[in-house]
Amino acid sequence: MKEIVILSGKGGTGKTTLTASLAALWKNKVTADCDVDAADLHLILRPEIKQRTDFYGGKEAVIDLEKCTQCGQCQEVCVFDAIDADFVVSEINCEGCGACYYFCPAEAISLIDRHSGEWYLSETRFGPLVHARLGIAEENSGKLVSLVKGQAKMLAEQRHLETILVDGSPGIGCPVISSLAGADLVLVVTEPTISAKHDMERIFSLAKHFGVPAAAVVNKYDLNENLTEEVESLCHREGVELLGRISYDPVVTEAMVQGKAIVEYTDGTVAQEVRNILGNLQAAL
């Protein structure tokens, strides 16, 4: 079984758009949306949810004001400033570290499981999808990503599917690190802008750090062809395989507005470019 994670560093480079088209073309795979913070893939895949499960990511402290003697110990030990002057815990600030719980002399504090989101097993016209929604202002995106990936893997085993296609998050932090664990290849979607190039370099370092080989695609390459060449030679230097280029074309947004993958919506240049990328990607694996 092979697992491909699609990342970009910088947001908005076309990561999810490309994932949707790869999902449309690829047979025998499970798709996993690990951009749990701002998941968009479902807007194109339009899943039919088969199973919905609550996600409890961590703990949170609750103070029983009846028992509380207002000694102030908890406020002193909480390094996250989560307990206000009236001994009420701020859900937003509390990291669930448990320090207050262990130091309260009156046993007025309990640590409860924190409901941090939900995850879904779904069917789509392009095969099964595992996805999730992290609650607003929640932590533990990394844990939810690991959970989604674990479920996708189980599903792939049950149904004898060969590939897991993972749409990752922007950035290089907690959810991205979790999505890299155990992956066979990182596909970096970049664009010819100095910001995207800068962010791509950080993703390459991250992939190297975790020992995952990387490949790259340059989206909207004709926006600045000089920079496209710079990005591509950077990939060469880093030993990153280039799988193709995609043109800057309004048809991409039109397809999105229709809730369709590009390859479903058109047979034009962009669709052809995406098909080539899939071919190169499968060859690279």
Partner: peptide, 10 residues
């Protein structure tokens, strides 16, 4: 700010 709606953005 970073993108998203989780702890770094908050």
């Amino acid at each position: 700010s970073p993108p998203g709606t989780s702890c770094p953005v908050i």
